[in-house]
Amino acid sequence: MKEFTPADASLLELVDRLLHKGVVLAGEATISVAGVDLIYLGLNVVLAAVETLERAERRAS
């Protein structure tokens, strides 16, 4: 059995864990990594943050 810590994680593993998972709010986009593997990016959080921002800005105005 090979054991790794998160510090040893490959970029793909790291990105898969950090962008595909985590608290999911809505939506996602697909990008190509090095033209080989497809991974799914959690733009969801970005979109959700934008919604929150818009609400905050409406309140402020």
């Binding site: 990105v15 962008l19 608290v23 959080v45």
Partner: peptide
């Protein structure tokens, strides 16, 4: 992404439990 994980890894050790967010949760303030 590595910095995001480094922070969350340390937070896990400091707090004993976190709800980690996916990369890219950003707020105006």
């Amino acid at each position: 992404a590595a910095a995001h994980q480094d922070v969350n890894g340390r937070l896990l050790e400091i707090t004993g439990g976190i709800v980690p967010l996916a990369f890219g949760a950003i707020y105006r303030g």
